[in-house]
C-alpha cells in the first residue's frame, strides 16, 4: 500500500526540535516551574501533616460526604498504607492527581462552557477530545518528556491531557441539558447571557460537572503507573519497579495503595455529586 512516502516521523521531530523547542522553550520552562512548584508544594503540605491526623481528617470528610462505611474504609485503608510503608509514595501520587485534576478543571470547565454556548466551538472541541482520549497514552509521554524533562511535571502534563476530556464533556452536557422551559423563563424576564449562565445554567449543571470531576480524578489515578515510566515518583514507580524486577509482592503493595486511594476519592466525590444534586 505504500504508493507514496509520508515522512511523518521526520516532520514531527523537525517540528519539535527545530521550531517548537527553540521558539517556545521559555514558555514551556515557565509552565514547568509553576507546575513543579505546585506539585512540590502540595506534596510537602500533605507530608507535613502527621499521618494519623491526615487519616482522621479524611475519615471525617468521608463521613460527611458519603457516610460511616466510607469513613471506616478510609481509616483501614490508611492503616494499610502505613503498615506497608508507602505513605510518602501515596502522598506524592495524591498530589500529582490533585494538581492534574485542578489543572483539568481550570482548563476543562471553561472549554466546556464555551462549547455549550457555541455550536462551532463544540464541533471543534469534540474531535479534539476524542483524539486525546483514544491516542495511546504512551505517545504523549514522549513530547511531555521532550518539552518538560523527566519527573513530576511531565507526569502532570500527560495526566492532565488524559484526564481532562470528561471535565469538558460533562460541563458541556450539564449546561446543554438544562430544560428549555427554564432557559426560556430566564430569557423572558430579561436575563443577559452572562446572567443566565451564572444564575441558571451553571448552578443547574453543577451535579453533572461534579460527575465529570469524579471521572477526571479516576482517570488521573489510572495514569499513575504509566506516568511513572517518565520518572513520576509515587505509587506508580513502586508498581513499575515490581514489574521490572518480576517482584509480584512489590507490585501488589503499590497496586493496592492505588486501589485504596481510588476508592476513597471516588466515593467522596460521588457523595459530593449527590449533595449538589437539586
Amino acid at each position: 500500500m505504500n504508493y507514496f512516502t509520508l515522512p511523518l516521523e521526520e516532520w514531527t521531530n523537525t517540528f519539535i526540535n527545530e521550531w517548537l523547542l527553540p521558539v517556545f522553550g521559555g514558555f514551556f520552562n515557565g509552565i514547568s516551574i509553576v507546575l513543579s512548584w505546585l506539585v512540590d508544594g502540595v506534596t510537602s503540605t500533605l507530608l507535613f501533616i502527621p499521618p494519623e491526623l491526615f487519616a482522621l481528617l479524611i475519615a471525617l470528610l468521608a463521613w460527611k460526604l458519603s457516610g460511616r462505611n466510607l469513613a471506616i474504609f478510609a481509616l483501614a485503608g490508611f492503616l494499610y498504607i502505613g503498615a506497608v510503608d508507602i505513605w510518602i509514595e501515596s502522598m506524592t501520587t495524591l498530589s500529582i492527581v490533585l494538581v492534574s485534576t485542578v489543572v483539568s478543571i481550570f482548563i476543562g470547565v471553561p472549554i466546556g462552557i464555551l462549547s455549550a454556548m457555541n455550536g462551532r466551538v463544540e464541533q471543534a472541541v469534540r474531535p479534539t477530545l476524542d483524539f486525546m482520549q483514544t491516542l495511546p497514552v504512551f505517545i504523549y509521554l514522549i513530547p511531555a518528556v521532550l518539552l518538560f524533562g523527566l519527573g513530576g511535571v511531565p507526569a502532570v502534563i500527560a495526566t492532565t491531557i488524559f484526564a481532562m476530556p470528561p471535565a469538558v464533556r460533562m460541563t458541556n452536557l450539564g449546561i446543554r441539558q438544562v430544560p428549555s422551559d427554564i432557559i426560556e423563563a430566564s430569557q423572558a424576564f430579561g436575563s443577559t447571557s452572562k446572567q443566565m449562565l451564572m444564575k441558571v445554567q451553571l448552578p443547574l449543571a453543577v451535579p453533572t460537572i461534579m460527575a465529570g470531576v469524579n471521572q477526571t480524578i479516576m482517570l488521573a489515578l489510572s495514569m499513575a503507573v504509566v506516568a511513572s515510566m517518565i520518572g513520576a515518583p509515587g505509587l506508580g514507580s513502586i508498581v513499575l519497579s515490581g514489574i521490572s524486577n518480576v517482584n509480584v509482592g512489590q507490585g501488589l503493595v503499590g497496586g493496592l495503595g492505588i486501589v485504596v486511594l481510588a476508592i476513597i476519592l471516588d466515593r467522596m466525590t460521588q457523595g459530593l455529586t449527590k449533595k449538589t444534586a437539586v
Binding site: D181, I182, E184, S186, F189, V278
Partner: peptide, 10 residues
Amino acid sequence: MVFQNFGLFP
C-alpha cells in the same frame, strides 16, 4: 410571562 410548565428554577 407565565409558562405552561411553570419554568421555575429548581
